[in-house]
Amino acid sequence: MPPDDCLARNEWICGAYLSTRRRILLDATLQHVRITVLAVLIGLLLAVPLALLARRLRPAAGPVLAGTTILYTIPSLAMFSLLLPLYGLSESLVVAGLALYSLTLLVRNILTGLRGVPEETRQAALGLGYGPLRLLLTVELPLALPAAMAGLRVATVSAVSLVTLGAVVGHGGLGNLIYAGMNTYFKAQVLTASVLCVVIAVAADLILLAVQRLITPWTRTERA
């Protein structure tokens, strides 16, 4: 006779589930975080040069923005499918798909930030004898940071939520548990994994907010 606990009764909230599946939950959470971090970092590494290119060369801005808009219209499930021939059923497939999404959000925000740098500020720096590289690194990029960080936060939170769809190729972090829980009607597993997803998203957002405050101290003093 099976034991009469919350697992056997298939309850939504179940302590026994947490204690017996700790290992599985931890592994899924780690995979979830790993995929998110890799995807957003790769997206960021690609987005910065693209945004700079679009800013420096005016004719490049149109194609870059149009390209990112089209990328963003492709559904996530479809994005994984389109990349399937390149990566096969692997974790890299999910990372690559989500990196492309992050890229689109980041390019737009970084470009908005760069365009928001006042012309007088640039002229003043040039008048002080700043070269183009020094102007970019010490004046333009820092001033574009608030807009870029806002984009980074949206991209990260979206990526955490989209990782779950990686379950369709078997690499979805907590999404794997949700998918498996759906097929076996396992309520505790679905609820626990869903709540963990939201917790990761909120935690990531708060961490990035803290980083933003640290690296842009001038925005704080202005408000005070």
Binding site: V160, G175, Y179, S194, V202
Partner: peptide, 18 residues
Amino acid sequence: SNVGRAVPTFAVLVLLLL
């Protein structure tokens, strides 16, 4: 709007299914 982005639609769908 912000909270909506953090909750995976797929998770909501599966939760509702159960």
